[in-house]
Design a protein around this nucleic acid. Sequence first.
DNA 1: ATCAATTGCGTTATGCTATAACGTGTGCGA
DNA 2: TCGCACACGTTATAGCATAACGCAATTGAT
Lengths: 132, 132
Amino acid sequence: MSAPALTKNQALVFDVLEKADGPLSAYTILDKLRDHGFRAPLQVYRALEKLLEYGVVHRLESINSFVACAHPGENCHSHGIVAFAICESCSQVMEFHDHEVDHRLMDWTRSKKFKAEKTTIEIRGLCEACAA
Amino acid sequence: MSAPALTKNQALVFDVLEKADGPLSAYTILDKLRDHGFRAPLQVYRALEKLLEYGVVHRLESINSFVACAHPGENCHSHGIVAFAICESCSQVMEFHDHEVDHRLMDWTRSKKFKAEKTTIEIRGLCEACAA
DNA sequence: ATCAATTGCGTTATGCTATAACGTGTGCGA
DNA sequence: TCGCACACGTTATAGCATAACGCAATTGAT
């Protein structure tokens, strides 16, 4: 599951996300890559699908956007559940991990015999700078 | 913030959600209410907006769907963060609350001076019956 | 009582998000 | 060299959500 060499499209999409200072929607990525020959949403979605699989990109469910993983070079899948704080004003995203939260949620799923596949934790609000 | 009497449309939408055995998309709700005169998505979305505000309905961000709160009569907003386990096979949803998780996330946001407005916790996977 | 503000409602139109279905080319192992 | 897996390109379509307009009913202050 670690990331193999990226294909051309995957590299382009990843590059856009890494250089962005916040999450981007698939269509925003598409627009940024039109100069590189991108024409259709599927080109973006297919690349994103792989990047998500490799753990180098995260999807923010609550805002339908994508962001590069904050741990360049590492496989984020090994960090346990990833949590995000998303500023609704400046759209900056902070990524963090909390093992105690992981344990509590795992305890719950175990007690219910629920087989968790993918867990989303997203906190929306205002970052320190924007809340001032 | 507690729920005032519902308007006709709000009551219709809430009723559909309460009788459903799982989360419904806005457009599914719309289809179920065509016989009651609903014609446009906005009629559903506007009702949902209020029901969410009143805390009697939850939005599941990861599947773009809505579900009636599992605590009929109570205002769910007072229970702290709401977490959901969503079965990807039978689409059954379990709603739960974990104060320890709340505390850990609040500790994090406090330490970052992040002003949380709305927190999403959604676990997707397979329920006990479907995992068998 | 009346006017203004608020709220809910209906409609049309539009925009944003995501995937289905088809076909092409390339590389690689049986 | 055949078959398979995979990335890619294109067109079309499905699914989710809101903008903008106008109207009606309610409320509440003057």
